[in-house]
Design a protein around this nucleic acid. Structure first.
Length: 276
DNA sequence: CCAGCAGCCTGTGCGC
DNA sequence: TGCGCACAGGCTGCTG
């Protein structure tokens, strides 16, 4: 599940791989689901011939600046985007292939077909629905904004707040669980019950977590791969996610798993007491 | 206004 | 061995 650290790792590896400066020679859309806007034919027409000027990221969106237009890509659950030699056999579920001016290809593969591309309008017309609703990045959340969000959603479980992209952009299920464990806050506690001190700890836990995950090039839990096709290494450092029944790395208590905010949620019953 | 959930989709892994 | 089903989850849009 690509979240901020994984998407940022894809961004960096695409840049390291030399994508910037290359042009799109041709585009093949094998499955229309992978192009969210506009229709595949117009999509191919609009991006063909353009040159990659920069690759940016906002939350979990990759943003390809293509001299004059910006192409957004969201990997959702199982999306992969990588630079490939033309001679590499095409993996199943490869939905979009961009042939590049140096003879390589930028390939997009997505087994569950949730992810895909959106071509943003030059005047920002398409952007508001996608990007304008995103909150600050985890390392840019101010204490005041965080406190206000907790107050606004005071009856919701704090886990739901961390998953809300309008509050913090980039966290997903894995890193929400990890941040709450680092902060010692139970995921089911209501936002209204989180003390000022806990807010401070939670904010710095988010920052440290994202920094650590980036250093290890993201988490490969099932099948994440970066822009060069390589897996991440942060899964070895996860403290709760995917560790149900295993001892808490801090206190040894078996990690619990429960459905909270509609998501499978992992926590340590001892380090993260529910009644606080 | 806001919390909660169905639906989208396919591969995996379980129970029978 | 094979079948059916629950589950995984980011995000939108609907409902209560």
């Amino acid at each position: 599940m690509p979240e901020l650290p994984e998407v940022e790792t894809v961004r960096r590896t695409l840049i390291e791989g030399g994508l910037v400066g290359l042009s799109i020679v041709s585009v093949t859309v094998a499955h229309p689901d992978a192009v969210h806007w506009p229709d595949p034919a117009r999509f191919a027409r609009e991006v063909t011939g353009r040159r990659f000027v920069d690759v940016r990221r906002r939350g979990k969106f990759l943003l390809f600046d293509l001299d004059g237009r910006t192409l957004a890509c969201h990997l959702r659950m199982t999306g992969r985007l990588w630079l490939s030699a033309t001679t590499e056999p095409e993996l199943s579920h490869t939905h979009v292939v961009c042939a590049l001016s140096d003879g390589r290809e930028l390939r997009f593969r997505d087994v569950r077909r949730f992810g895909g591309f959106t071509l943003l309008e030059p005047d920002g017309g398409m952007a508001p629905s996608l990007l304008a609703r995103l909150g600050p990045e985890p390392d840019e959340v101010s204490a005041a904004a965080f406190a206000a969000a907790l107050q606004r959603h005071r009856r919701s479980p704090v886990k739901a707040l961390l998953l809300d992209q309008a509050v913090v952009a980039g966290l997903g299920n894995i890193y929400a669980d990890e941040a709450l464990h680092r902060a010692g806050v139970h995921p089911a506690r209501t936002c209204g019950s989180v003390s000022k001190q806990e807010q401070k700890v939670l904010r710095s836990a988010m920052r440290a977590l994202v920094r650590d995950a980036l250093r290890h090039r993201g988490t490969t839990f099932l099948d994440f791969r970066d822009g060069a096709g390589e897996p991440g290494a942060f899964q070895a450092f996860l403290r709760v996610y995917g560790r149900e029944g295993l001892p808490c790395r801090h206190c040894g208590t078996p990690i619990a798993k429960r459905r909270i905010a509609g998501r499978g949620t992992h926590f340590c019953p001892r380090c993260q007491p529910e009644g606080e």
